[in-house]
Design a protein around this nucleic acid. Structure first.
Lengths: 340, 340
DNA sequence: CTGTTAGCGCATTCAA
DNA sequence: TTGAATGCGCTAACAG
């Protein structure tokens, strides 16, 4: 039988209330008494029953997700995952709200963050735009006791408690490795397509990709990255133009969104033998893999990311450390054969 | 405020005890009364607070994991993950025991399963050997009210409630796709190494692999599979013999364990240009990837598998459906760049 | 500064 | 067949 507050009250020779004060680090207890209780805790190996505590406290965790608006498929899937987490709210004792902001608009993002009531929300997860004003807004929230986690795209240098996403440099390297091997000794150029160099995930992928190509595949040279703002039509035009202008392009790496446009452009040029690697499993990319238009898709499991964000934010709100192993988001590689 | 038992007691005009009887489907309540309560439940949209229920009931879930003994690295990692879950037992209200049995020994497995006390264990997770007697033992347990889940290797045709593992046919197909692309139009033979054709995961991988090679890579022919009982030394000898006997082998797929032996054999023949795909990330395979001895490793996250087994077994013990999305185990592909 | 007491939402004796 | 009362482990008034 594991020890309860009663046991440690008895062991320490104090009352339940005092034990509770010490356990929750509330003021108004003599140092002497604090130590007595802490000793008892250690001696008996007490660990608090969080579920019982939450029951007694009728605790719910008010959480806010701030994500980009717009047609980006990946973000819409992310939103669906958040919605699905809202369905589990009663069980998980959460109260989740979604705020959408125009993509790549740090001003709007800051306004949303600043409008949050620190007393009414215990945690925020946001898809970050990597600018100083956003960093400052995040740090302000942390100062006010609101736990902040970044989602999908990180905010290096900020005080966010956790990044729920993948190592994007490694993701870029992985893409480089795949493209290199799929080109198998052929010589030529690789077109790199990006959304925006103002989000850290895209920058990281580009640099990881370039590093591997340079080090391990000297026969391949990079063209780009061309920036498309993650807009599918822009992607389609850019890719079409590049392919038509340069017959030496033998591979494409799209490290951003807008896969629909990429697929269009490639389908219209079926005769070109291209190795194509893109990011994120969506209906479009899934279809492209099945057809052989894409050779591989690198993915982050956004269901996992959302569940992880919730666990991490809850844990930090309680001053607990999350289970690092469970919270690491994998860099998934999908071929047509291992699609989920 | 979500409704509580009190609310539905008031709504139905009965006492708490009666509500509880109906909710837990205990006998001794008039049909009339049952209906009154059920109507109240539906009207108010009541959902039971499982944590409060577990608190009141002081419920713990006694779980048993049955896994192969022996030096197989993957199984030892699995065991470590189970041990780590045991550390979380107080929080997760579990009581976990590990039983090891000689590998590929269905008799021993059956003996362990039959020795279990159905009244003292609520769930069992086992790495199954695919034989009729094991299937029967599993079904016996289910009949006695013990929830059974298979782990890593499934037991098709049995009544187990869940398989915590990957789709091994798809894993084999994935390996085939990778090997095919990495060989990039070269013509030759692929050596397939297996542990035992008596476990369903190995059989499935072999057939998935063969299917893809036949359909998509006609220039590659399969040699094997050679069976090694997952013993590293046997693998080393078999691979060495095959490579030396047949200079036309340009790729190797090890769908079983014993990677240490595989690595030895390849290292001793550095001049051979081989595409190598194996399974499971362990210290050995991680090192081999880094060195370029392996080109890709297909992995199942056994930490995830263990956590999932626990969640699924607990949920089924309470008659609840687990979150299917969270419980699907991915077929991970690792290159040296995206190793965790 | 410390202790008493009454719940949180649910399960379970024990009576009736 | 039903209900009242007690307690699970913990928190939070409210006294003292």
């Amino acid at each position: 039988m594991r020890p309860t507050v009663h046991d440690i009250a008895a062991e320490a020779g104090v009352s339940l209330a005092t034990v509770d004060r010490v356990l929750n680090r509330r003021p108004g207890v003599r140092r002497q008494t604090v130590e007595k209780v802490e000793n008892a805790v250690n001696r008996l190996g007490y660990v608090r029953d969080v579920t019982a505590a939450n029951l007694a406290r009728r605790r719910i965790y008010p959480l806010v997700f701030v994500i980009p608006a717009g047609p980006n498929s990946f973000m819409r899937v992310l939103e669906a995952e958040i919605a699905s987490a809202m369905g589990r709210s009663p069980v998980e004792r959460t109260s989740i709200r979604i705020e959408t902001v125009p993509p790549f608009d740090s001003g709007a993002l800051v306004r949303v963050l600043d409008a949050l009531d620190p007393k009414a929300v215990s945690g925020v997860a946001l898809v970050a735009t990597d600018t100083p004003d956003v960093r400052a807004a995040v740090d302000r929230l942390m100062d006010q006791g609101v736990q902040v986690a970044t989602l999908v795209s990180d905010l290096p240098g900020s005080r966010r408690v956790h990044f729920c996403g993948i190592d994007n440099i490694a993701a870029g390297r992985t893409a480089g490795n795949l493209v290199g091997r799929f080109c198998a000794g052929r010589r030529g150029r690789v077109l790199v397509v990006a959304g925006s160099m103002r989000v850290s995930d895209h920058m990281d992928r580009a640099s990881g990709f370039a590093a591997v190509l340079e080090a391990d595949f000297p026969d391949l040279d990079i063209v780009g990255p061309v920036e498309t703002n993650d807009d599918a039509d822009t992607v389609a035009q850019a890719v079409a133009a590049a392919l038509d202008a340069d017959p030496g392009i033998i591979a494409i790496y799209n490290l951003g969104a807008g896969n629909r446009g990429l697929i269009e452009a490639i389908r219209a040029r079926r005769q070109r033998k291209l190795a194509v690697v893109a990011h994120e499993v969506t209906d479009h990319s899934r279809q492209a893999l099945a057809e052989g238009v894409f050779d591989a898709v690198i993915n982050q499991d956004c269901g996992h990311e959302v569940r992880s964000a919730i666990r991490v934010l809850k844990a930090h709100a309680d001053g607990l450390a999350p289970l690092s192993d469970q919270e690491r988001i994998r860099i998934d590689i999908f071929l047509k054969d291992n699609l989920p």
